[in-house]
Amino acid sequence: MEIQTERLVLRPFEDKDFEDTRQIYTNPKVCKFLLEEPWTEGEARNKFQNKLEKASLTKESGYSIAVDYNGKVIGSMAIWYTEMRDTLEIGYVFSPNYGGRGLATEAVRAVLEYAFNELDVHRVQANLDARNAASEKLCRRVGMRKEAHFIQDFWSKGEWTDSFVFGMLRSDLN
């Protein structure tokens, strides 16, 4: 799958994307609300290899998507099927160096349109750390609605954290 938007190319990861991706995932600020710790130099290559291997979406395996802006990977997205019929979950990470330009919104909207129009899914959801205000704003900007707030439901990085679930149906796509 490759999606082209006005400014972006959303595509499978390639070997040439390693350094851009490593810079994103070794940044502690980027990883603050992720389930994983920042990548160490020793594990970066193996973590990146996992993204390379997820080059297409199947019912059993998610798809890792490179967000390419003028030949540079500025973000990483993933989609995967949940256990619920015709439902995808979406996740994303973007470099803060490219914030404030609407690029994350453009990328997420494009993946949502792809999910509903090409994959014919019924629902897309995003689960996020409730402290991640930027991610919450992004979900709202693309038309997702907050459907749940779970209190201290997830043990992450040594503490109990709250989670938000945002969802969208095909009929919500504008």
Rank of each mutant, 00 (worst) to 15 (best):
R145A: 09
S56V: 15
E118A: 08
E19K: 12
S56L: 15
Y114Q: 01
V121L: 05
T58F: 11
T58P: 02
A104S: 14
A133Y: 04
G62T: 14
S61I: 14
Q49Y: 09
W155N: 02
P28V: 12
S171M: 10
D162H: 05
D153P: 00
E43A: 11
Y92T: 08
L88E: 03
R141V: 06
K137S: 08
H149D: 05
P28W: 04
L128V: 05
L34Q: 13
C139D: 03
D162T: 00
E83T: 12
E113K: 09
W80R: 05
I74H: 12
C31L: 13
S163C: 09
G167C: 10
W155A: 03
G100M: 08
P38T: 13
V93T: 15
E136A: 15
V165P: 00
S171E: 14
E37V: 07
E118Q: 09
D172S: 01
P28C: 03
Q23R: 15
N132Y: 08
W39Y: 12
N127P: 00
L138N: 02
D162S: 08
L34R: 07
K51E: 11
G100W: 08
A133V: 14
Q49V: 10
E113N: 10
T161F: 00
L52E: 04
L128E: 07
V9K: 15
R85F: 10
R170T: 01
A126D: 04
K29S: 11
I90R: 00
N132R: 04
F150C: 11
R45Y: 06
L103S: 05
K16L: 03
R109S: 12
V9P: 02
T5D: 03
L173Y: 07
Q23W: 10
E147L: 13
D153K: 01
M1V: 10
E43T: 15
R141E: 09
A134V: 15
H149W: 13
L35M: 09
E43W: 09
I90E: 05
G71R: 13
D172L: 03
A134P: 11
V30C: 01
D153H: 06
E159C: 03
T161D: 08
A107N: 10
L138H: 01
F33T: 12
D153G: 07
V124K: 00
K137A: 14
I3W: 11
I74Y: 14
K51S: 11
G99M: 03
W155L: 05
